[in-house]
Simulated assay, not measured.
Amino acid sequence: MSRQPDEPPVEARADSASEAHSSGPPTLPEDLLLLLFRPEQGVIAGETTLFYALAGAVLADLALQGSLAAQRTRAASVDVEAVQGKAPSDEILLDAWKYLSDGPRGVQTVLPAIGPALRQPVLDRLLARGDMRKEKRTVLTFFSTTVLREGHSGRRAGLVKDVRDVLVDGKEPTARTAALAALIWGSGTLHQFDPEIPWNSSVIDRARRLEQGNWGAGATGEAVTRTMTAAIVNNVVSATASVSARQ
């Protein structure tokens, strides 16, 4: 991200952001990272392409708040730009919003630009909230290592239930849950939620509809926001598939 010479580096601003807003309302990237955490294994699903998914969540959150505008280019790609006068209060989202205030940028350019610096500050917030915790373990009686464990807030279980209700039971989602489910699908990790969220044809079909912006009447928000979020998720899908194909 671009910054002025007297500004602190992105990492420093990110650390400050994680501390300043860990007690505020959770952001979409926080919810996504918490969902992608696999408690039984102590790992985060999709680590190799995680930054694309987190960046997509930041853009989707900005879109849901009305802080982001999008337009299709002649080449059929999607450009996004900050909506002036609609700066978000959250520091992580604000950093991305400022980056997009310089003018329209292609989503495929934005994702790798803002994504790599997101994991740690977002994780720090989850730890500060008690949604996740760190546990020290001794390996081979000599080496000490730190592993991630689920916290005691119970928030992950609530998020999984919300997504499961939509993908398994066909409940109409809120706009936020629709975006979360679509981003999980876009990250290529949905199959890893089985058996919490069964991996079957009906779940896949519903996830694909959410990816395309078909959220149903229950998901409040203007059609343009759904279309914008769908375009963001589609770019996450493309970026994730491209990385996976090279591995």
Rank of each mutant, 00 (worst) to 15 (best):
residue 24 G to R: 12
residue 24 G to Q: 14
residue 25 P to F: 00
residue 25 P to H: 03
residue 25 P to E: 14
residue 25 P to V: 13
residue 26 P to D: 11
residue 26 P to H: 00
residue 27 T to N: 06
residue 27 T to H: 04
residue 28 L to A: 05
residue 28 L to R: 01
residue 31 D to M: 11
residue 31 D to A: 15
residue 31 D to W: 00
residue 31 D to Y: 00
residue 32 L to G: 10
residue 32 L to W: 03
residue 32 L to I: 13
residue 33 L to K: 05
residue 33 L to E: 10
residue 33 L to I: 15
residue 33 L to T: 14
residue 34 L to C: 05
residue 34 L to Y: 04
residue 35 L to C: 12
residue 35 L to D: 09
residue 36 L to S: 07
residue 36 L to M: 14
residue 36 L to W: 05
residue 36 L to G: 11
residue 37 F to E: 05
residue 38 R to Y: 08
residue 39 P to V: 10
residue 39 P to C: 05
residue 39 P to L: 11
residue 40 E to Y: 02
residue 40 E to M: 10
residue 40 E to T: 12
residue 41 Q to F: 03
residue 41 Q to V: 09
residue 41 Q to L: 14
residue 43 V to W: 02
residue 43 V to T: 15
residue 44 I to R: 04
residue 44 I to D: 07
residue 45 A to R: 15
residue 45 A to H: 06
residue 46 G to H: 08
residue 46 G to Q: 07
residue 47 E to K: 13
residue 47 E to W: 06
residue 48 T to I: 10
residue 48 T to L: 10
residue 48 T to G: 05
residue 48 T to P: 02
residue 49 T to I: 11
residue 49 T to Y: 04
residue 49 T to R: 07
residue 50 L to P: 05
residue 50 L to I: 13
residue 50 L to D: 05
residue 50 L to N: 10
residue 50 L to T: 07
residue 51 F to C: 10
residue 51 F to L: 13
residue 51 F to W: 05
residue 52 Y to L: 14
residue 53 A to K: 08
residue 53 A to H: 06
residue 54 L to M: 09
residue 55 A to Q: 00
residue 55 A to V: 03
residue 55 A to T: 01
residue 56 G to Y: 05
residue 56 G to V: 11
residue 56 G to P: 12
residue 56 G to M: 11
residue 57 A to V: 10
residue 58 V to G: 07
residue 58 V to T: 09
residue 59 L to H: 06
residue 59 L to V: 09
residue 60 A to L: 07
residue 60 A to H: 04
residue 61 D to Q: 12
residue 61 D to V: 06
residue 61 D to M: 06
residue 62 L to Y: 01
residue 62 L to G: 14
residue 63 A to L: 09
residue 63 A to S: 15
residue 63 A to G: 15
residue 63 A to V: 06
residue 64 L to C: 07
residue 64 L to I: 04
residue 64 L to D: 13
residue 64 L to Y: 02
residue 64 L to H: 08
residue 64 L to A: 15
residue 65 Q to L: 14
residue 66 G to V: 13
residue 67 S to V: 08
residue 67 S to L: 06
residue 68 L to M: 01
residue 68 L to N: 02
residue 68 L to W: 01
residue 70 A to D: 07
residue 71 Q to A: 15
residue 72 R to G: 05
residue 74 R to Y: 01
residue 75 A to Q: 13
residue 76 A to D: 13
residue 77 S to N: 12
residue 77 S to K: 13
residue 78 V to E: 02
residue 78 V to Q: 05
residue 79 D to E: 15
residue 80 V to W: 00
residue 80 V to Y: 00
residue 81 E to K: 09
residue 82 A to M: 07
residue 83 V to K: 06
residue 83 V to A: 11
residue 83 V to I: 15
residue 84 Q to F: 01
residue 84 Q to P: 00
residue 84 Q to Y: 00
residue 85 G to S: 10
residue 86 K to T: 09
residue 87 A to C: 08
residue 88 P to R: 03
residue 88 P to D: 10
residue 88 P to Y: 02
residue 88 P to E: 12
residue 90 D to A: 12
residue 91 E to K: 07
residue 91 E to T: 04
residue 92 I to Y: 00
residue 92 I to Q: 11
residue 93 L to M: 05
residue 94 L to A: 12
residue 94 L to W: 02
residue 95 D to L: 15
residue 96 A to C: 13
residue 96 A to D: 00
residue 97 W to N: 14
residue 97 W to Q: 12
residue 97 W to I: 10
residue 97 W to S: 14
residue 98 K to I: 08
residue 98 K to L: 12
residue 99 Y to K: 04
residue 99 Y to S: 13
residue 100 L to C: 09
residue 100 L to H: 01
residue 100 L to M: 04
residue 101 S to A: 15
residue 103 G to Q: 03
residue 104 P to T: 09
